[in-house]
Design a protein around this nucleic acid. Sequence first.
DNA 1: TTTACAACATAAAACGATTTTCCTACTGTT
DNA 2: AACAGTAGGAAAATCGTTTTATGTTGTAAA
Lengths: 352, 352
Amino acid sequence: MDRKIGSRPSIRDVARSAGVSPGCVSNVINGRRKQDDPIGRAVHEAIEKLGYRRNTIASNLRRSQSRFIGLVIPDFENPFFAELVAQLEQQAEGTQYRIVATSSREDPEIELRELDELAGWPVAGILLVPSMDSRCKPVIQTSDKPVVVIDRIIPDSDLDVIAVDNFEASAEGMRRLLELGHRRILIAYLDDGIVNVDERLAGVRAAAAQHSDELEVNFLATGPDVEGARQRIGDLLDENPGTTAIFCLFNSATLAAYGAAQARNLRLGQGLALLSFDDSTWMSQVQPAVAAIIQPVAEIARQAWERILTRIDAETEPAGIVRVRCELSQRETLIAANGVQESASRTTEEQV
Amino acid sequence: MDRKIGSRPSIRDVARSAGVSPGCVSNVINGRRKQDDPIGRAVHEAIEKLGYRRNTIASNLRRSQSRFIGLVIPDFENPFFAELVAQLEQQAEGTQYRIVATSSREDPEIELRELDELAGWPVAGILLVPSMDSRCKPVIQTSDKPVVVIDRIIPDSDLDVIAVDNFEASAEGMRRLLELGHRRILIAYLDDGIVNVDERLAGVRAAAAQHSDELEVNFLATGPDVEGARQRIGDLLDENPGTTAIFCLFNSATLAAYGAAQARNLRLGQGLALLSFDDSTWMSQVQPAVAAIIQPVAEIARQAWERILTRIDAETEPAGIVRVRCELSQRETLIAANGVQESASRTTEEQV
DNA sequence: TTTACAACATAAAACGATTTTCCTACTGTT
DNA sequence: AACAGTAGGAAAATCGTTTTATGTTGTAAA
């Protein structure tokens, strides 16, 4: 044993042990060599014997191109982003790249710091779900590394974006409510400058505008926290007892609406319809199950991964926005205005 | 502009621009120099002018000690782990270290691969929430980097562990139910070899054993998925109509129990008590709100962070298990067996 | 047998930073 | 004025790997 004590064996140690040069070991490791060759075998034995692991950092440094892809999301605790991370990790599996995930906690300052940090590694590319404002725009536009924006478009920029078709999905949701006979509808939205919610709002407005009957649509900005949202939705329900449907344009509003309705003994799925943009586990488990527009996270991840790899390979097709379609899941809270349950029962849905 | 085109400026470029040597620039960057000194100022100007960012990888390589701390969790989509990641990121903020999070998807194989990968970076230390089995034990015991295990202890090992006091917390939960007069109790648990649930089960058993009255405690292994768990819990409720309380020893069983009770028109918080080990957002928002044993994630993160930093600084106090206490949140589903609601109302709780 | 060429191992340079060593210039003391 | 001591920058070595350049060996063609 002639290797330095206390530190990991290096490629030199392996080379010495196998009686070859470090460069040769490198070639073996990186598969630049025929199968079934005595020297290769010897090297592999030495690696085994010494317990050698390649030092990723040194390797990346020499290649001057790392195999990390940075992922910046606003928040790990949002189930949508959590699933996104999980799906992207799955995409990365088996490729030579790996995801390094960090969060900005919806704070533009932290977001900038994270992007800066990732630039300093440096990473091969960046996947970004931007936080609320667009302060990061100049940074990512001038970035020397490819950037793919996910979920939230950045206005007036020609970046690659993968997002769901918020407008169309919520328009469809709204049309569905109208078809079911609803005329007094509460729309719960968020006024935090998140583009998605704006797009959804626009979709709802467009669907409402296309409708000929007289409608009473109440738009309510609830604020981001569930507690406050429940309060406001409750108040609005009290003021407008004729409301027959609630359409929540973001995740936590749905929970708030659910709680508010329960507290008032309004029977969801009987007297009151509820539709959620974005699904959560609890929505399909409670009774009545809450109808939701499901965002295809796996598909988003797939597209984003494909796009960032393409960009890293420097194929320079023009940047573009990819919109993926959502799916409206028919569940028990999606009922006609007259209280008749139009949809198939949950049992049927489960069998699918 | 004499720096290489297309690549980031290096410390050499800065040195040239400031008319000093690279080593001197390094000293300036790392604060090994008096304040208020003309050369330092010149260097900072050059850095500013060229838009120089230190290359983290090269820096780490030279120091032969990286400032990454690897975090391996079983699953990003589990809210408990999601919060853990978020809290640890917050702990890392402002320190010189940063978290690099990956997940094993509860797969011991992937877990081993991830640990191996992290060892190859190499990271300064590893935070690990082990997956179900203990296959990783030999790897982390022989690791040359400090490892701190979080949330799930690894049997028969002398590693540093930060976990909640599962035994005591669930014993307390059980005692609480007994105090409230419950004698026919359903315990929903998981039989996947996750240590925590075993500990919780032991706590429940111990509390039951201490009780003198005759008890009918049904232990039900539900399986990990919510759908199946709902089925089984429902069946058991049908077979044992006298059941007055359900105690769920893991997160998703609570949702299953909630759904199963709703489906049977069993009035939670009136005819039937429900207590959950582990809290989720929905539990405090639905009505009646579901009582839960809350795991102090922030405290766990704090302790884990402190411990790993201590280990990295090579202070070799003996390894040990730290148990942090959980808190039982009094909510509306925690009622006496006779149906009387013992607890303060939710409104009161909110004011706290 | 000689020449050309392929194959492949070794030696050395390089990646970008940090750290050590060396050397110069300055300060202060006698 | 001569010398010791010190401060601090420049130069060089270094981290572990990959890559390029160089050289050697062996095979095939002439």
